[in-house]
Design a protein around this nucleic acid. Structure first.
Lengths: 343, 343
DNA sequence: TTTTTTTACGCAATCGTTACCGACAACGTT
DNA sequence: AACGTTGTCGGTAACGATTGCGTAAAAAAA
């Protein structure tokens, strides 16, 4: 099966005009008589003519499309961020092409290269947890492809970035647990490559230090796939909960991780209650048992801001040399899961 | 800023060959001597040449991309279905472009038209709740655009479809509530336009009839935006719970609806406990309080099957005239929310 | 009337790629 | 010696749209 569409040529033939005349009539050029214009416009309307964006892309080397690369759309943070991205993009006349890396560096590379080849005008990227090496992105960037990072950024590439205040979000969450008189607070985080991992880890460490709680490396567990692979998280939790000295609270550093972890904890047989909190943008944290204390990011706004930066970059005449690094505040929503009293 | 990429012309110039020779060498034509081939291939590799898909699309009138139109990616069912779609598409060499209608008919039309103009080879569509009129899709379909419906289908267009067994899923869920000795079972569903609404409603009605429970129209509430607009759901619930004769159980007909509804019920002040179940593909139904009884659809498989149908249609030489309408079974997962004993 | 200007349109190049159609050697056959 | 094969390659026309340039006829100015 193939799909036939009407072209400018069909109009030209039907009206006995040249292709160029039709083209100019369509864009309302002053060189075309008003009668001809009218005839062309009417006929175009009648046969429902739509200019072929592929041909236009080839000619103008722009597509009015932006590519988005996230690890997973089935992630509350990313799906909200995407809605923010779309809200700006559509208003500015850009289309959005969403791709998922599934936390795989290889998949991310394939997606990025495909988007670039497809001719997107720019890229909105949140790195996969495997992405230690971003050289292919850097190459693309240096060839002139506008790129804006959000959430999971790379310091290797100097461009606009939009992130949450992961450090303070993490600091406050940890401090909150400390105020609740938890003494042994574990931190389950994702891949050490990621910017967010380091920032959240730093917040955690500094909060402990501030309150004179010794840092125990054995309480920090890395899950390189960020909660996507359940066995990984299972192993981390088992290691924590089967140790001689169990943690009395657990703090998770990512959306999927928080969900996976919370699920595993609840399903653990003979489980001992532990305080729990984590970064997640779920809208239903209060429906869980216990209701979840969460650190929520302004995902929608992050998507919006990143998109504004990107479009600004795309439409800039000369290479951009001054970059903005926007940091948005997180919100700590305290519920039962982090209250010692109810455990 | 603009993004420059290497073309076949650059290779031709560098190697002092004609464009056509380079093109043939790249595709391994037998007409090209092995030395020339080798030289071209090596140089192409060196400068990291990638054929321009836009030019190819223009020439071949195919893009090896399929377009997906769903109402919302922040919906457990759809994000799982999309993963199924991608798993097949990537294996078959197709890229996937995801768009959201946000339950708006207008937005859906814009997306579909853009995807068509962009030259996707086919469309995977789950209709928005507003989409009563599908004439624009029908037109496209009749012009030769392969379209496969999944989940929310249209009887106006005869093509392959993939759906869950909504009737039986709904029947069993209702019957389960009846066995739990609930007497007044309300049904909150989405737009009456949707195929799934009718099928689920029929299952509900027939289960009641089977058990000699009179059907009460006042217990059926429609939320045309399927849980996307909270006030709509709020109104439905208020109408139910403030009536003289309250329902003793509520059965929701969609993913977003189930979540929104469950949240509202929990947050209602002075609420009376009611039995609860609904269609949803959440992976964390057991973490809620009470743990959620759900009807789960094989979303991943549905996405896979729909994609297989679509690709088959795309690659078929002649117009397809025999259509498959695949129905996959749902799964009823019984947990506390539907047990009368625990209320 | 002649020259210049304006109006309104067509031609052809361009974007990157493929594919049809030849061109032209170096052979082998009669 | 004349012709046909075969192996390699180049020229060029598409695909759909835009656009700079050229130009006929009509209108205006000389």
């Amino acid at each position: 099966m193939k799909f036939e569409s009407v072209t400018i040529k069909d109009i030209a033939k039907a009206l006995n005009l040249s292709i160029s005349t039709v083209s100019r009539a369509l864009r309302g050029s002053y060189e075309i008589s008003s009668e001809t214009k009218k005839a062309v416009l009417e006929y175009a309307e009648k046969i429902n003519y739509r200019p072929n964006p592929i041909a236009l892309s080839l000619k103008e080397r722009r597509t009015r499309a932006i590519g988005v690369v996230v690890s997973e759309i089935a992630n509350n943070f990313f799906s909200q961020a995407i809605n923010g991205i779309e809200s700006i993009a559509y208003n500015r006349g850009y289309h959005v092409i969403i791709t998922q890396s599934h936390e795989s560096q290889e998949r991310e590379r394939v997606n990025v290269e495909h988007l670039a080849a497809r001719g997107v005008d720019g890229l909105l990227v949140s790195l996969s947890s495997e992405s230690a090496d971003v050289s292919y992105l850097k190459e693309l960037y240096e060839k002139g492809m506008p790129i804006v990072f959000f959430d999971r950024v790379s310091s290797e590439i100097e461009t606009h970035t939009v992130v949450a205040n992961n450090y303070w979000g993490s600091y406050h969450a940890t401090e909150h647990l400390i105020y609740q008189e938890f003494k042994r607070i574990a931190h389950i985080t994702s891949s050490p490559h990621l910017s967010i991992t380091k920032e959240r880890l730093d917040g955690y460490k500094d909060a402990l230090a501030k309150h004179n709680i010794p840092l125990r490396e054995e309480l920090i567990k890395y899950c390189p796939h960020g909660g996507m692979k359940v066995p990984e998280v299972e192993e981390a939790i088992n290691a924590l909960m089967k140790a001689k000295q169990k943690p009395d609270a657990i703090f998770c550093a990512g959306d999927r991780l928080t969900m996976t972890c919370f699920g595993l904890l609840k399903r653990m047989k003979g489980k001992k209650e532990v305080g729990f909190t984590g970064f997640t943008n779920t809208a239903v944290g209060d429906l869980f048992a216990p209701a979840l204390t969460v650190i929520s990011q302004p995902a929608f706004e992050m998507g919006q801001t990143a998109t504004e930066f990107l479009i600004q970059m795309i439409e800039s005449r000369r290479p951009v040399t001054e970059f903005q690094n926007k940091v948005l505040e997180t919100e700590l929503i305290i519920r039962e899961s982090s209250k010692k009293s109810v455990l």
